[in-house]
Design a protein around this nucleic acid. Structure first.
Lengths: 142, 142
DNA sequence: TATTGTTATACTCTATAACTATA
DNA sequence: TATAGTTATAGAGTATAACAATA
């Protein structure tokens, strides 16, 4: 039972998110807010509603994330001139900078987390998880 | 960034827990309650405080889990005769039965989750995640 | 009328602190 | 006094429903 992939993903995932949250907290960020920046950076969504759909969260939740990221200067909100109901979110230079910092933190956490694995094993693990993510239609989100 | 093991574990883990929660819900169980049964089954803890330590949750949270599992007839609470403050939790026959059912559900979810992987890849993934869990001192929990 | 974003509200999960009973 | 369990309370995080602006 403990050997179940699904069960272990749940336990390890909770630990991983905890570590990641602690790492980005000094930058005023929560994991899901980083997820939003990733979605923008990858060009997976433009409007807030699109972001909500891609991340699999309620649209009302995106409002708060966008408010916060805007406050950090990480994103800009602009009304879509073609449809003035839509708020188009774009990453600012500061946002890209923050995202780079988060990437570096993630790399560092990865090294710590996969401490007992060889570089080859680490690569295999990353590859297999990437395929699971694709299979689930999961681009990012947390 | 999306390729980070820690980040992907977070995203995949949340999805996995969601699936597992939906699978055990018809049996009146939440993932953490299953985790408690696993801890007992594996002999990792006896008293409620031990369970809380092993699972990494607050002792007050275990009270509710134990109440619920007792209500389902899955565990028994007995006062430790040597120290009457301690509640010793033990799995009943019904508890073992429920845990077996959860194991079957997990196996089925695993098959679905690792659909795109060969049996060999599935085994490699399970092995690597097992080593990550050991490295983190994670026996169970969810 | 329908849709986007927002606000108000409520629900779930969890932790901290106060309490009890035993030690 | 200290510890195991319990209860009361509070804080995250999230969703649903009502609302405003625009289509």
């Amino acid at each position: 039972m403990q050997e179940s992939v699904v069960f272990r993903l749940g336990v390890l995932g909770a630990t991983a998110t905890e570590l990641f949250a602690a790492a980005v907290e000094p930058y005023g960020l929560k994991p899901k807010q980083v997820g939003l920046m990733i979605v923008l950076s990858a060009g997976l969504a433009a409007s807030q509603l699109d972001v909500a759909r891609v991340m699999g969260v309620a649209p009302s939740l995106v409002v708060g994330f966008a408010d916060h990221l805007e406050g950090l200067g990480a994103i800009r909100r602009t009304r879509d001139p073609a449809d003035r109901r839509r708020q188009l979110l774009t990453l600012t230079d500061r946002g890209r900078e923050l995202l780079d910092t988060c990437s570096a933190l993630a790399r560092s956490l990865d090294a710590e987390f996969t401490d007992g694995l060889t570089p080859q094993e680490h690569a295999v693990l990353a590859g297999l998880m990437g395929r699971l993510a694709v299979g689930r239609g999961l681009p990012a989100g947390r």
